[in-house]
Design a protein around this nucleic acid. Structure first.
Lengths: 404, 404
DNA sequence: GACTTTGCGTCCAATATGAAATCAAATGAG
DNA sequence: CTCATTTGATTTCATATTGGACGCAAAGTC
């Protein structure tokens, strides 16, 4: 269970924290490199590493095969096998779960339709059961769980609000049941925030500590991170740019750029439309072209707003509609740049439907490392280097219900 | 000069830093209270204080007059007399300068019309000369200078852009001349950011570490601070909500809510208007009422955007037009709350025309304390308790040109 | 095979820390 | 007024942490 012997694993001394933090940033590494990177004396680094190995946090690896002369340095790395984390993306239509070890190696994954008719308690229990099955005999090693939801997560409790597309997650019993099943260390996070984390660590925004995401799903979701840290308000409404009343007659931005809104507006105008993607065909009918212009206007407002809100280096576009926007990314970028003399790099999400669950893994790992005593500045990089491999995620996927 | 013997004044040891940081947060205080607040042993606190006093950073004050028995504790406080800072608000129409000591006691202040016909170098030299005159014989104690400007300040250099209302501040020679005159520690900051700092420390947003400001001047300025720290992007465009193309035909938000834009739009509509304040009379003519509705719509978009950008506890409205909005603050707040289920407290700026210069003093002091080794978390509070007293600022005001 | 280079652990002196004792300064009781 | 009591500040001392110097180990070079 999550709380098992956690205290014994906590790193106390400042020196040891500094060493572990640097190890996280540049892993795998060696004692000598840690000395150079931290400025701490070789004697102290050696002692700290010795203790970290004794605690089971760090392990020695194979020797370096550098071409230089002299004795070979022993590689050091986190001992990822000592624990596992679970990342869950609880979406309005699908649930995605990834189990990974402490260095973000995917161990198992699953995807299943959301049983949206279930009440909060049953839904939570279903998540616990499925995750437990995926973890198999490693269940005892579970250290942290992160769950992404389509709603505003308030810092108090935490409680959830504005979850229009999956109402039952607002029920506090959801978290209660999750805690009962997974243990203490369960966190709820907005799904767009998690998708951003995923893309920042493993996807389209790698190397951009200040980045933002805009997801076009059932609703418009947004997330922002500055210097590797999510911007999250106490009420969870940071990023709710979809609520800006910028359309004609005060229509909300969300209704101008997401699927249901587009279809409704088309119906109101008497335009036949099968899918929102019809809006993005190359030679549209005049009536459609007018709607597309409105869409573009609204989207550019959203992009501009998010740009002046946090000045991201990269702005990721995700969700079902995002691929349709690819041909026009350059045009959107120019429009933003025209308005504020700066524009972030506009890119499509690269993890696709996995970004939320991948981000949940990142959030869970971050939680683990923070409890281990890693410095906050270093958390943004952890676990860098060990990219969560999408192919491996798929390779370890199991149909729900299959047993070990 | 600024760089004089700075190194000797830097606090090195972690313990000493912790003590100084806590002293800043709860000053004036005593050794015993520092022991309780920091958790450091009495012996170490005593030693640290001794050294801080020896360095000249801290001084002992009068004894406490507590009603309890036992020996009286000696009060400890920052030694504000050991240095001075200069805060300058370089506006499009007026320059305001405040000289203060290291505990934010105003020593001198001045206000003069901006000589906007001067080129960058001459303008900078005028600032240096005026400040030097205000400082008098204390000039040698100058530790830091902050200058607020109506433009986007980029982190590189720093360079300035988007300064449409005072073009010459974009010239890099401005900073060069300022550095030549004031010394190394001059920083340029966006004026809205500084106004927010001022209101957060001394004005309408006291006690709100997460706050934002919207200033209605020649242009629309905005600033945001999260947890006591300004949100500043590398390109300085954070907060440029005025550039959102939300009006009809893509009109920028700025043009809908600031003086020049209002006058121009009135002229275009054939409405006679002497001052933008005419828009806010209690029983407007129908044509005016329509314009007012447009203004309200745009303002609510701005307020909503800034709310979802950082979720401030307090949103300060400043600049010339702000007082006209007072009767409608509750209405605006409700509109925002309707859109995002949360609204910050909407308040008018309390420092009026002084907020920028007061904020510049805060920024300069923060710079000083950071160089002294104060922990970043404690900087948001420094120098709490010593409120910059507006009456004192006025009392020490001198007409430019007067001599000591 | 001796030498050099590099990695890493050990020894030791220097430093910083906290618990406890001591000194200092105030009040109140008798 | 004197002395016990209380609280604040410093000193003493035992202890822990740190980094430099040294020594050993393991590799390549000549």
């Amino acid at each position: 269970m999550v709380e098992a012997k956690e205290s014994a694993r906590t790193v106390h001394s400042p020196t040891e924290r500094a060493v572990l933090s640097q190890l996280l940033r540049s892993r795998p590494t060696t004692r000598t490199r840690l000395v150079a990177d931290t400025g701490i004396s070789a004697a102290s680094v050696s002692r700290a590493v010795e203790h970290l190995i004794g605690t089971g946090v760090v392990r020695e690896g194979d020797e370096v095969v550098a071409g230089t002369r002299g004795r070979r340095a022993v590689t050091l790395d986190l001992d990822g096998s000592r624990g596992i984390v679970v990342g869950i993306d609880l979406g309005a239509s699908n649930i995605r779960i990834i189990v990974a070890d402490l260095v973000a190696t995917p161990l198992a994954s699953a995807e299943l339709p959301t049983p949206s008719d279930l009440a909060a308690t049953e839904l939570a229990q279903a998540l616990v059961d499925t995750a437990r099955e995926l973890c198999g005999e490693r269940w005892g090693l579970l250290r942290a769980v992160s769950v992404g939801l389509p709603g505003a997560v308030r810092a108090d409790g935490p409680s959830v609000s504005n979850a229009n597309n999956l109402q039952q997650v607002e029920d506090p019993r959801l978290l209660k049941t999750l805690r009962a099943g997974f243990g203490e260390h369960v966190q709820l996070v907005n799904d767009a925030d998690l998708a951003l984390l995923g893309e920042q660590r493993f996807g389209a925004a790698v190397g951009a500590p200040t980045a933002a995401i805009l997801t076009f799903g059932t609703g418009l979701g947004a997330g922002m991170a500055r210097d590797g840290v999510l911007v999250q308000g106490r009420h969870g409404i940071v990023g709710e740019f979809g609520q800006l009343p910028v359309g004609p007659l005060g229509t909300r931005l969300e209704h101008m750029v997401t699927g249901p809104g587009i279809l409704r507006r088309a119906a109101e105008s008497g335009i036949a439309m099968n899918s929102p993607a019809d809006l993005f065909v190359s030679d549209p009918a005049p009536a459609l072209a007018a709607m597309r212009t409105q869409f573009d206007t609204a989207l550019i407002i959203a992009l501009t707003a998010i740009t002046v809100a946090c000045e991201p280096d990269v702005l990721v576009l995700g969700g079902g509609l995002a691929p349709s926007l690819e041909p026009d990314l350059a045009r959107y970028r120019e429009a933003v740049e025209l308005h504020v003399h700066y524009a972030p790099r506009l890119v499509l999400a690269r993890l696709g439907t996995h970004s939320g669950a991948a981000g949940a893994v990142v959030a869970a790992l971050t939680d683990c490392y923070r409890r281990l005593g890693v410095a906050d500045e270093a958390l943004g990089d952890a676990p860098v280097g060990a990219l969560l491999d999408l192919d491996r995620v798929r390779a370890v996927a199991r149909p729900p219900g299959a047993h070990d």
